[in-house]
Amino acid sequence: MALPEGGTEQPLSSLSWRPMRPDDIDAVVEVARLSFPDHFEDRACFQNRLALYPRGCFVLADGDEPAKGYLIAYPWRAEAAPPLNTVIEGLPAEPALIYLHDLALHPDARGGGVTRAVVERLAEQAEADGWPAIALVAVNDAVGFWTRHGFQARDIAGLEEKLASYGADARYMIRAL
């Protein structure tokens, strides 16, 4: 899912992106609840993604304080998106790219441009690991936000039904690396 645009709080200079830890999950669930009220995903979903691919999980926090944002990404199949709020048994046997599952900020941390750092960190890491692209499903009218981060919307035959579960404005997007 993609970050909803907007936000009112000035940038908080004490916040920085760091690897997610299991003790961050409660704060991540709260940020998700505030950011995506129409796309609920429970605690088990976030625990699952962190366990499957910790390398793609980051939080925005002031040291050990509760997270004010998060990014979750993992290897996945091209032209596909996992179902919302679903624990996945494992990563695909032959993944083709990195799937950016979620990026969200607490309302107090929005509007300061803090997302660029983590999106670029993910892109650099994915490219260094040999992945050719990052894909995501943009929701909450966030296509413009993701376009500014180098993603391009793609119409994928056969993906329409799955995207409908993400909402009427959902768009599959890719950033080549």
Rank of each mutant, 00 (worst) to 15 (best):
Y70P: 02
A126V: 02
A78R: 14
V114R: 08
P83A: 10
A126M: 02
I134V: 13
P83W: 06
P22W: 02
A138Y: 01
R18D: 15
G150C: 03
L50A: 04
G6N: 05
R148S: 13
S13P: 07
Y166I: 09
G167R: 07
A142I: 04
P83T: 06
V28M: 09
L34Y: 04
P37T: 09
V59A: 08
K68P: 11
A44L: 10
P22Q: 03
Y166D: 09
L71G: 00
S16A: 08
I174F: 11
Y53T: 03
V87K: 15
L163S: 09
T147W: 08
E120I: 02
F40P: 11
L122M: 00
G158R: 09
G113M: 03
Y53E: 04
G56Q: 01
N48E: 08
N85I: 05
E41T: 10
A61H: 06
A128D: 03
R154W: 15
G63T: 06
A67W: 02
L15G: 08
E89A: 08
V87G: 14
T147D: 07
A44F: 09
E9D: 13
G112Q: 00
P82N: 13
Y70F: 12
F58N: 06
V87S: 10
C57E: 01
A73I: 00
C57T: 01
L84I: 03
E30N: 11
G144F: 07
Y53R: 04
E79S: 07
G158Y: 12
D102R: 01
D141E: 10
P19A: 13
V139L: 12
Y172F: 12
D23F: 12
T8Y: 11
I134Y: 07
R121E: 11
L71C: 00
S35Y: 05
A135P: 05
A128M: 02
D155I: 14
I25E: 05
L122Y: 00
A133N: 04
R116V: 10
A142P: 04
S16R: 15
T147G: 09
A142V: 02
P107L: 03
I174W: 07
P4T: 01
A176D: 14
L103D: 03
F145W: 03
L159I: 10
V139F: 04
K162L: 12
L60E: 03
A117V: 08
R154M: 10
H149M: 14
S14D: 12
P95N: 12
L103A: 06
A128H: 02
D141A: 08
A51N: 08
M1W: 02
G150S: 03
G112Y: 00
E30D: 14
A153C: 11
D38T: 15
V28E: 11
V28Q: 07
A80D: 10
H39F: 13
Q10H: 10
S165G: 15
L84G: 02
Q152N: 09
F40T: 15
I174D: 05
E161H: 07
L177Y: 06
A44S: 12
L177Q: 06
A164D: 09
L122G: 00
P92S: 08
G158A: 10
L12S: 08
A61Q: 06
Q47T: 13
A128V: 01
A67N: 06
L3F: 00
G111E: 00
